[in-house]
Amino acid sequence: MKDLIKLANLPISDEQAKSLESAFSETLEVFKNLTDLDISQTEPTNQVTGQENVLREDKIDEDRMLTQSQALQSAKHTHEGFFVVPRLIDEK
């Protein structure tokens, strides 16, 4: 569970994790019925529309591009046109 919380990047206390754990196994229990069905000859469905090759031409779409201030408008921390986060690595 700890690994999972880390992998999911969720800031959860140990106590909260414990309460989530029971819900977790309850849900996994439901999935067991899938073993009833024979899927040995079945291909997976990742998309239902059956569409293929939906591609864009290599053109610049100015209409959709945002100005710098629009790009930054919802960020809590910015500096001179950049988004800001606490230092990620120590300078080597």
């Binding site: 959709r64 591009m65 710098q68 790009a71």
Partner: peptide, 9 residues
């Protein structure tokens, strides 16, 4: 400048 070639995507 930074962040001038962006869009929602």
């Amino acid at each position: 400048k930074p962040n001038i070639y962006t869009c929602p995507v």
